[in-house]
C-alpha cells in the first residue's frame, strides 16, 4: 500500500468541500474514522467490524454536515473522531438499554435495584444515616420531573433516550438534572447543619 502524506487541516476542509478531490477524501476520512473507532472501542464486547463500518458511515455524514462548525481548536481529524465517538457511543448505549421505557423503570415509585452491580461496592462509602438523608431529600425536595431525571440516570438510562421520552432537548435535560443535584446538595447541607452538635459552650447554656 502507498503511504500517503498526511493531509493538513486546510486540505481536509477544502477537499471535503468540493469536487474533484471530494469522493476520494471522503473515503480517506471514513477509513480514518474506522481506525479511530476501532482503537476507541477496543475491548468492548459486542462491537463487530460491521458495526464499526456502520458507525463510520453515519459519522461521516454527520461530520460533513458540521464541517463549517470546525473552529480549529484541535486538528481536524481529532475533531472528526470526537464526533464519531459520540455517534457510536450513543448507538451502543441505546442497544444496551434496549426498549425499556420510563414506565418500565417505575421511577414514580422507584425500587430500581436492578441495573447496578449486585455486589454493591458502595457499601463502604455510604453510611446508613446518609442513605436515609439522601432518600428523604429525593422524596421531599425534588419536582417529579427532577426526580425522574435523577433516578433514570442512576438506573443507567441513556440521556438521549431519557430526553426523547421526556420530550425535551438533551440540554434541557442536563439543566433539569443539574437543578436537581443542586437542590439535593443544598437540602443535605441544611440537614447536616441542623443535626450537627452545637459548639461545646453553647451546649451547656442551651435549653
Amino acid at each position: 500500500m502507498v503511504q500517503e502524506e498526511p493531509r493538513s487541516d486546510e486540505q481536509w476542509l477544502s477537499e471535503l468541500r468540493e469536487a474533484p478531490a471530494r469522493a476520494e477524501t471522503v473515503v480517506a476520512l471514513r477509513s480514518y474514522v474506522v481506525g479511530g473507532l476501532r482503537r476507541a472501542l477496543a475491548g468492548r464486547p459486542g462491537v463487530s467490524d460491521a458495526d464499526l463500518e456502520d458507525f463510520a458511515q453515519a459519522s461521516v455524514i454527520r461530520i460533513l454536515d458540521r464541517l463549517e462548525s470546525f473552529e480549529g481548536r484541535s486538528r481536524f481529524t481529532t475533531w472528526a473522531l470526537a464526533i464519531a465517538i459520540r455517534v457510536a457511543m450513543t448507538e451502543l448505549r441505546r442497544r444496551r438499554w434496549g426498549d425499556r421505557s420510563l414506565a418500565d423503570l417505575e421511577v414514580d415509585r422507584p425500587s430500581p435495584r436492578s441495573t447496578r452491580a449486585e455486589s454493591d461496592p458502595g457499601d463502604a462509602l455510604v453510611r446508613a444515616d446518609e442513605i436515609a438523608r439522601l432518600e428523604r431529600a429525593i422524596e421531599t425536595h425534588l419536582t417529579p420531573r427532577q426526580r425522574t431525571a435523577i433516578l433514570a440516570e442512576l438506573a443507567g438510562m441513556p440521556t438521549a433516550v431519557l430526553a426523547e421520552q421526556l420530550g425535551i432537548t438533551p440540554n434541557a435535560l442536563y439543566k433539569l438534572h443539574h437543578d436537581a443535584r443542586r437542590k439535593l446538595r443544598a437540602a443535605l447541607e441544611q440537614d447536616q447543619a441542623r443535626s450537627a452538635p452545637p459548639p461545646s459552650n453553647a451546649a451547656r447554656t442551651k435549653r
Binding site: 439522601l134 433516578l151 443539574h178
Partner: peptide, 25 residues
C-alpha cells in the same frame, strides 16, 4: 418511597459532592 441500591446512592453522593453552582452542559 425511594429505594436505591447502595451503589446507586454512593454514585449519587459522589455526583452531589462534585456538583457546582454553575456548570457547562
Amino acid at each position: 418511597t425511594v429505594e436505591l441500591s447502595r451503589a446507586q446512592l454512593a454514585e449519587l453522593a459522589r455526583l452531589l459532592a462534585s456538583t457546582a453552582p454553575e456548570e457547562v452542559d
